[in-house]
Lab assay of single mutants.
Amino acid sequence: MFKRLMMVALLVIAPLSAATAADQTNPYKLMDEAAQKTFDRLKNEQPQIRANPDYLRTIVDQELLPYVQVKYAGALVLGQYYKSATPAQREAYFAAFREYLKQAYGQALAMYHGQTYQIAPEQPLGDKTIVPIRVTIIDPNGRPPVRLDFQWRKNSQTGNWQAYDMIAEGVSMITTKQNEWGTLLRTKGIDGLTAQLKSISQQKITLEEKK
């Protein structure tokens, strides 16, 4: 169930391209415009997507990853294993993690069937560096609404905000991946996880038929 919630949630996290980005210092504006741009692209490019579902990787690479804190999220997933990894191991892992996100997020976007969304009203940021933004996803086919909290983090150097995690039903996506990959990290280390991520990233994206 959580895996499905995570995939549905990713439908609204794909941010804007650099040329049309919203105010990078306001995570609420980023979330709002990102959702609108993403849904528009999914709707307008269905012919290309249906002809070649792996085209979704391109959308992810162009529109999402430049505005997601990939390395920060990847380091959180590694936890204690990050500090013990060599620079070469980290570089290989982050490259594999990025390719994994292209496949995983692309597969999530393949679930698009006309969903709509509501974003919580903007709250004062103050001096906060981590801000959760509640998004409610509404399914046109009558499924119950899904309420999610996207975690946005302020870059201490640039002042810009980027998304790095999502919490559904009190469970963090980062925590879920830590639990899912924990045994592999304990037995085969970061190299074993890197190899698995490379394998997963090679899987073809498949479209979910409308139910």
Rank of each mutant, 00 (worst) to 15 (best):
Q202I: 12
Y100M: 12
L30G: 14
K128E: 09
T20W: 15
A92N: 14
K71F: 03
T136F: 06
T176V: 02
D23A: 09
S84V: 11
G74F: 00
T206V: 13
K188V: 04
I13W: 14
K3L: 05
S201R: 10
S17I: 08
Y72R: 01
S17C: 10
Q178T: 07
D165R: 04
P124L: 12
M111G: 03
Q202Y: 15
L42W: 05
Q157P: 11
R143D: 01
E180D: 04
Y82R: 01
Y164N: 04
Q118N: 11
R90W: 03
T175F: 07
F2K: 03
G189C: 09
D23T: 10
R147D: 00
A85M: 10
E91V: 10
V60H: 05
I133G: 02
A110Y: 15
G79Q: 04
I133C: 03
T116W: 11
Q103M: 15
K128V: 12
Q178M: 07
Y72W: 03
M6G: 01
M7P: 00
A35M: 15
Q89A: 13
A9G: 05
G106R: 01
A35R: 02
M173F: 00
A9S: 05
R4C: 14
A22G: 09
G114Y: 05
Q157R: 07
I167W: 14
A104S: 12
M6A: 03
E45S: 13
A51Q: 14
R98A: 12
L56V: 10
D165A: 00
A22H: 14
V135C: 03
F39P: 01
A9M: 10
M1S: 00
T187V: 05
A35D: 05
Q115N: 00
V171H: 10
V77E: 11
L30H: 04
A34C: 09
S199P: 08
R57K: 11
Y93M: 06
T187C: 06
A34H: 02
A18H: 13
F150D: 00
V146Y: 11
Y100N: 15
E99K: 06
L193F: 07
L5A: 02
I138L: 11
A18P: 14
Y81K: 10
Q203H: 10
F150L: 03
A9K: 01
R134M: 03
A95Q: 09
K43N: 07
A73P: 05
Q203R: 13
Q203Y: 15
D149W: 02
R41W: 03
Q62S: 12
A75Q: 02
L30C: 06
L184K: 11
V70E: 12
Q151H: 03
I130R: 02
M31A: 02
A14S: 14
L11N: 00
Q157W: 08
I137C: 00
L197N: 15
I133Y: 08
A120H: 15
T183Q: 09
Y81L: 05
D40K: 11
Q162T: 05
Y28A: 06
Q103R: 05
L11M: 09
P121Q: 10
F150N: 03
L197Q: 04
Q69M: 03
E209Y: 12
E169H: 02
V12G: 03
A104I: 05
E180I: 03
E122V: 10
A19W: 03
L5Q: 01
Q115Y: 02
Y81T: 08
S172G: 00
K128T: 12
R50K: 07
M111E: 14
I49T: 14
P87D: 09
R147I: 05
A85L: 07
V77N: 08
A9Y: 12
L197F: 03
Q115F: 02
D191Y: 09
F39G: 02
K204I: 11
M6R: 01
A9R: 01
L101C: 15
Q89I: 06
P87W: 05
L125M: 10
M173T: 00
D54E: 10
E63F: 01
G159K: 14
I138E: 08
P27W: 02
P140K: 13
Q196D: 03
Q36V: 13
W181F: 00
Q62H: 11
L5R: 00
I200E: 05
E209G: 12
T183Y: 06
T175I: 00
H113R: 07
S199H: 09
M111A: 00
L197R: 14
E63M: 03
E33M: 06
W181E: 14
S201D: 15
T20Y: 13
Q123C: 05
K3Y: 06
D165I: 00
T86I: 06
A85G: 13
E208W: 12
K211N: 04
S84H: 13
A168C: 01
K128H: 08
Y105P: 01
V68K: 13
V135P: 03
A108H: 05
V60G: 07
A104Y: 02
G114V: 06
V70S: 14
V146A: 00
N52W: 06
I49L: 15
T194P: 14
Q36R: 09
M6W: 03
P66D: 15
A9L: 15
R134A: 00
I49E: 05
L197M: 08
Y117E: 09
D139K: 15
E63A: 05
M7N: 01
A95G: 14
M1Q: 00
F150C: 02
V68M: 15
K128L: 07
P27H: 05
L56R: 05
M111F: 08
A18C: 15
I59N: 06
Y105R: 00
Y105S: 01
T175L: 09
M6I: 10
G114T: 08
Y28L: 04
T38G: 03
R50Y: 09
P132L: 07
H113T: 07
Q203V: 12
G106C: 12
R4W: 10
L109R: 11
M1E: 01
D61F: 07
E45N: 14
T176G: 00
V146H: 11
T158M: 15
D139E: 15
G170K: 03
P121F: 11
A96Q: 08
T158F: 04
Q103Y: 07
N160L: 07
S17F: 08
Q123A: 03
Q24T: 13
Y117Q: 02
L5G: 01
L11D: 01
Y82E: 01
V131F: 00
N141S: 06
M173V: 02
I137S: 00
T136N: 12
L184S: 08
P144T: 06
A163D: 08
Q123D: 07
L148A: 00
K204W: 10
F97E: 02
G142Y: 08
R153A: 00
Q115T: 02
I59E: 04
V70Q: 11
W181N: 14
K154H: 06
I138T: 09
E33F: 03
V131W: 09
Q203D: 14
Q89F: 04
G114E: 06
Q48E: 13
Y112E: 05
R98K: 12
A110K: 15
M31C: 02
M31I: 05
V77Y: 07
R186C: 00
S156Y: 03
E33S: 04
F94T: 06
G106H: 03
L42Y: 06
N52Y: 09
R57G: 14
Q69C: 03
I137R: 13
R50W: 09
M31K: 02
R147N: 05
R134W: 02
M166W: 08
D40V: 12
P66G: 10
R143Q: 05
Q80A: 09
E91W: 05
A110I: 12
Q103F: 07
R41Y: 02
R41K: 05
R41D: 03
D32R: 09
N160I: 10
Q196R: 07
L76N: 02
G192W: 14
A195H: 13
L193A: 00
V77K: 00
A95H: 10
A88M: 15
P15V: 02
Q103E: 15
T158Q: 06
A75I: 00
D54V: 13
G189L: 02
K210G: 12
Q202S: 12
P66Q: 09
A92K: 12
T25W: 10
Q48S: 14
D54C: 08
T86R: 07
K37W: 07
K29L: 12
R153C: 01
A110V: 03
D139G: 13
Y72N: 05
A108R: 11
E91C: 06
L193H: 10
A22E: 10
L16G: 08
L10F: 10
R90S: 05
Q24W: 12
P47V: 12
